[in-house]
């Protein structure tokens, strides 16, 4: 049985200007110890699909359908009490913006100790020493001193490392990390990725990593999910998908990497922009940016069809 099993998630935002379907039909499994990477265009629904797991979608959005099974228990309709026990305890979330986790008016020590005391019975001293241990794990120099500081006194990367330390406090079963290393320099990024990797291997922790850095995905995740306009459009083994993308959008994404162009030259762009979620075209949501478009693509949306290891939502998948 999978550690986490997600089926047909749909989240909508009712706005003044109409209802936005932010994600539709998102399904995947996460096994114990498995590491999944989610990539895709900005606004494609990566963060929303992760927030939905923990019932954290921001107002006025809500989970309009779908099922989420964690350790055999359906949690999509769980009450607040159950969710509180899971959130920040068995499933931790690292947000893209560290200030979503950190309270600006509390010192780091208060925030870390409170997190621990909320989920576990222990003394404040014990909580403090765990906090220091986790700060060391994410390479914060002089943790005792940093504990007494406020978030605004720390650099962007240091804040993010503290958030990562907070997410590790309760030894969670799953970490959902939304762009956890975007604000970090590559040396610290490398250390943190290694730390996450070790946790997955040693404690069979599951990891859902949202990132736009294909280098990071290649290094960390065994499986990759590519999202576009609210849906998963390709998934499979990370190496295989990056080496030979089957969906034209995935190919465009890989082709846009700076490494694919000589320095100083214009980078390859995918023409056009992702459609606004309020006006997703009929047929394939990518059709008006795709160079392989046919009439079929304009009229019928392709389903995510799975082969043995690869699934792709395209009428004319690329080969080789």
């Amino acid at each position: 049985m999978a550690l986490l099993s997600i089926r047909n998630l749909e989240v909508v935002f009712p706005l003044r200007t109409g209802t936005i379907p932010a994600i539709q039909d998102v399904s995947y499994d996460l096994e114990e110890g498995e590491r999944i990477g989610i990539v895709g265009e900005s606004g494609a629904g990566k963060s929303v699909s992760a927030f939905a797991i923990l019932n954290l979608v921001s107002q006025p959005g809500y989970l309009s359908s779908g099922s989420i099974v964690f350790e055999g228990q359906e949690i999509s309709n769980a009450d607040d009490e159950t969710m509180r026990r899971i959130r920040g305890n068995k499933i931790s979330m690292i947000f893209q913006d560290p200030m979503m986790t950190l309270n600006p008016v509390l010192t780091i020590s208060t925030q870390m100790e409170e997190t621990l005391l909320a989920h576990t019975r222990m003394t404040r001293e014990a909580a403090r020493s765990i906090a220091i241990e986790k700060l060391r794990a994410v390479q914060i120099p002089s943790p005792e001193k940093r504990l007494e500081q406020y978030p605004h006194e720390l650099s962007g990367g240091m804040r993010q490392r503290i958030v990562i330390a907070i997410s590790l406090l309760t030894d969670p079963r799953i970490i959902i990390a939304d762009e956890p290393t975007t604000a970090l320099d590559v040396t610290i990024q490398a250390e943190i990725l290694e730390l996450l990797l070790a946790l997955c291997n040693d404690y069979r922790m599951g990891l859902i990593l949202i990132t736009h850095d294909l280098g990071v995905v290649s290094q960390i995740s065994q499986r990759i999910l590519v999202m576009y306009a609210g849906r998963i459009i390709e998934q499979g083994n990370t190496r295989e998908v990056i080496a030979s993308p089957a969906h034209p959008y995935t190919r465009g994404l890989v082709g846009a990497l700076p490494e694919m162009t000589r320095p100083g030259r214009r980078l390859n762009q995918i023409p056009g922009t992702m459609p606004s979620l309020q006006s997703i075209p009929t047929g394939c949501p990518f059709h008006d940016r795709c160079s392989h478009v046919t009439d079929l693509c304009r009229s019928h949306r392709p389903d995510l069809v799975s082969g043995s290891r690869r699934a792709v939502a395209c009428h004319h998948p690329l080969t080789g």
Binding site: S42, Q96, H212, D213, R266, L267
Partner: peptide, 20 residues
Amino acid sequence: DEPISALDVSIQAQVLNLLM
């Protein structure tokens, strides 16, 4: 200051092209 680190690769390419 980290103007494109929150962007996905294809938008990064677009913004970098614009800045260049």
